[in-house]
Design a protein around this nucleic acid. Structure first.
Lengths: 229, 229
DNA sequence: AACAAAACCTGACATATATCATGTTTTCTC
DNA sequence: GAGAAAACATGATATATGTCAGGTTTTGTT
């Protein structure tokens, strides 16, 4: 396992790539690598974060509890992504919970180092800003989808998202397997509705399943359904 | 009319407050003040922005067109807020349209100056970052509301939002008057549904109306409706 | 291998919300 | 101030989706 941040490939994909050697050394010296099992919580909504979490391996769901007791998954964070940045920047408790979707390896970086770099290195700050700007755009898109698309369309979209971002295995099943409940929480619907729609897609030959695993069979048909026939 | 940014109060509320004297002078020299009438578009989705828009007076709706031809209003930008920052940072066409909700006065600041400051002044960059982090949190909240709350709850929420952010006049009507269609587009519902809910609230004595103008009569009742009775 | 727990699935039903159609009121324009 | 256009309003109806309730299958644990 590579323990020096300077040599970590993961870094290439996130804002840490804008750090200079000295800063990276600091991060490397202060960081703590942690492992989480599938289902473990990295942090909970309302918690004060003392640093950020850089994903080395695995996927985490970032969710927010609603008044009626349902989780809404707002984002999936993957290898290379940094979690908790927002809360550290605004110095507020985090508004999201992070739970491991599969086994994870994560580097925890104390906030002092991040904050320090943000004050001194505009390139780094700007890089963080770019990432946040990207997230904000995605959030805007989600808002529009939520209000304007049907549940069926959003479920279809979720599968294409999973395919495009995590790929498929040799048998054609999605690499990232989410429970039906998680999919429902991404899409913002009831678990039963989600299951029903998956069944329908299966019946129509758009999808295939094998246990929890799901594979996309007719991508075009799914896409045209999303676009509104 | 105050034309020097250094003396502009509006600036106190946005990221420009982190600029130093020199930078402000640059902005002041380069900015162009523009006026827009109610209904005018400041910019359209997909347009390349050559700068940012700082709102001196009036309110603008930021919206995104969905596949089915409906506008979803993602945010209302008020005095002091800066629009178009996101697009300038990521150097992409803007994902949102901006239309004046009432008569507006806006300062256009060429992007070069903004970008330049972001490279040189970490305080400014950090301040922009803080604002974006705030917007992102709000967007997350909207996502959760969209998927977990009923239309009725969201309409009620919209009115409280308008009251808290824009206040009421002497007669108790909301200072910011939106059309029923705009409210529907904020909330993400059909105009007819929105109208029906307003009628219902009026019948129950929660709201009062006078033409387009709307006043909140029973705030507590609206709040408890939002919270789920 | 046996059992429990969790995840998945399906039916029946209720209901919130969209859609269409039509009429009224308000606002705008000349 | 008259006429046109836009905004507002309401009824009737269809339907997507949530909820409750009862199953089966899969997964995990000892």
């Amino acid at each position: 396992m590579e323990t020096r941040c300077e040599n970590c490939i993961v870094r290439k994909f996130n804002s840490l790539r804008a750090m200079n050697k000295e800063e990276l050394k600091q991060v490397s010296d202060a960081k703590v690598t942690k492992k989480f099992k599938k289902g473990d919580a990295l942090f909970e909504e309302g918690e004060k974060l003392n640093g950020v979490y850089c994903v080395r391996d695995g996927v985490s769901k970032l969710s927010k509890l609603s008044a009626n007791g349902k989780d809404q998954i707002v984002k999936l964070a993957t290898t290379g992504e940094v979690m908790g940045q927002r809360a550290v920047i605004v110095e507020e408790p985090t508004n999201l919970s992070a739970v491991a979707v599969n086994d994870m390896e994560v580097c925890f970086v104390p906030k002092e180092i991040i904050v320090d770099s943000m004050h001194k290195n505009p390139d780094f700050t700007l890089e963080v800003l770019r990432h946040m700007a990207h997230d904000l755009k995605e959030a805007d898109d989600v808002i529009v989808n939520m209000s304007q698309k049907t549940v069926k369309q959003r479920v279809a979209e979720a599968f294409l998202y999973l395919k495009n971002n995590y790929g498929v295995d040799e048998e054609g099943f999605l690499n990232l397997t989410l429970s039906r409940e998680d999919i429902a929480n991404v899409v913002g619907t009831a678990t039963e509705s989600c299951i029903r729609i998956i069944s329908e897609f299966k019946k129509k030959g758009f999808l295939k399943t094998s246990g929890k695993r799901i594979g996309i069979v007719k991508e075009k048909e799914l896409q045209s359904l999303i676009d509104g026939f």
